[in-house]
């Protein structure tokens, strides 16, 4: 017999939660236990009193599954609010990558030239390496990393996506 899995559209969720032990485990555990995808997850506390954290989750699934994910998150006791930024409309997504490239000669020059095109910053350099810092949406970061593979890529670190809705309103 065939074992089938479903694919679907990408959604960015912003979740505000109590900043307390176990919350992240609860949320990631929910995703694994119910078989939902996590493409990216970031978390940091966002209030002056450190009471709340904001989690940005990039997930994918058919619309009924996205609806379930939101409902399942929303009923967790420490979760204050779940917002589907994708559903809400225009929003800005950013992530940062640190990209280490090693090499000399033409490759090194090409890496620097491409970094300039992508507005990546050089944050560290030795005689035969660079570390670039690039900020942008995931697709831009992906493209930059793909190009760097041709230019001596040795290591990548990425933050995952943070996102926020456009306009004056808060969540």
């Amino acid at each position: 017999m065939k074992i089938t899995t479903e694919t679907g559209e990408r959604h960015v969720l912003a979740v505000t939660v109590d900043n307390e032990a176990g919350v992240l485990a609860k949320i990631t555990g929910l995703f694994t236990a119910r078989g939902y995808n996590i493409e990216s997850l970031t978390v940091a506390d966002i209030t002056a009193d450190h009471a709340l954290s904001r989690i940005t989750i990039v997930t994918s699934g058919p619309p009924p599954i996205i609806d379930q994910i939101i409902a399942q998150l929303d009923r967790l006791v420490p979760v204050h609010k779940v917002t589907d930024l994708t559903d809400q409309g225009a929003h800005v997504e950013r992530e940062i990558a640190l990209v280490k490239v090693a090499g000399t000669g033409d490759k090194r020059i090409e890496a620097l030239r491409l970094a300039d095109v992508f507005r990546a910053k050089v944050v560290d350099t030795t005689i035969n390496s660079f570390i670039f810092e690039i900020t942008g949406n995931s697709e831009k970061v992906d493209r930059f990393i793909a190009l760097m593979r041709e230019c001596g890529l040795v290591e990548v670190g990425r933050t995952g996506v943070v996102a926020i809705a456009r306009g004056a309103e808060a969540l």
């Binding site: 032990a21 176990g22 485990a25 609860k26 555990g29 929910l30 236990a33 967790l76 006791v77 420490p78």
Partner: peptide
């Protein structure tokens, strides 16, 4: 205990 029961409780506390 909180780890083991995290997903079989409505909520738990340590």
């Amino acid at each position: 205990t909180v780890g083991i029961t995290r997903h079989c409780t409505k909520h738990n506390y340590l």
